[in-house]
């Protein structure tokens, strides 16, 4: 059985594609590995491709939510792409809505969206920085 899911670094993004039926420990290891890689590479965005996943049960759903939350706290955006239609239908019926997880139909759309999210964030930071500068000057 596969014991590690590779995480690829591309610029300020991390890319990973889950192509095996993950057992629970593998999912937990992935969570930890990804968190470390985000910090190590100061990644701004993470793209997770699940187009090969034939099922997403509550455990894997919870793992995706955890990854999204931890990444947010570490200032990285996450997008999950490529969910199969049958998996989406099943997830909703199971009762999982994947709240707070950005999704896209495929890798291409997901990457575009991720770049947009990161760019928006940088703009916002820039604007805040300017605000601070002007208020500092006004204080002089």
């Amino acid at each position: 059985m596969v014991d590690k899911i590779p995480i690829l670094k591309m610029g300020k993004y991390l890319l990973l594609s889950i192509q095996v039926d993950m057992h629970d420990q593998l999912a937990l290891d992935l969570q930890e590995d990804l968190t470390n890689q985000i910090v190590k590479h100061r990644a701004k965005g993470v793209l997770i491709d699940i187009s090969s996943l034939e099922i997403v049960d509550s455990f894997i759903g919870r793992m995706l939510s955890h990854i999204a939350n931890v990444s947010r706290i570490l200032d990285a955006k996450v997008i999950v792409v490529g969910m199969q239609p049958a998996v989406a239908i099943t997830l909703v019926e199971l009762g999982l809505s994947l709240d707070g997880i950005a999704t896209a139909l495929n890798v291409e759309k997901g990457m575009a969206r991720l770049e947009q999210m990161v760019a928006d964030d940088e703009l916002l930071e820039l604007a805040r920085g300017e605000e601070r500068d002007t208020s500092a000057k006004a204080g002089d």
Partner: peptide, 17 residues
């Protein structure tokens, strides 16, 4: 069908866990 397959596999996964 594919959706039914996915549903029974997912249900089995939940109960087995």
């Amino acid at each position: 069908g594919l959706v039914s397959q996915t549903k029974i596999v997912t249900a089995a996964s939940e109960i087995a866990r």
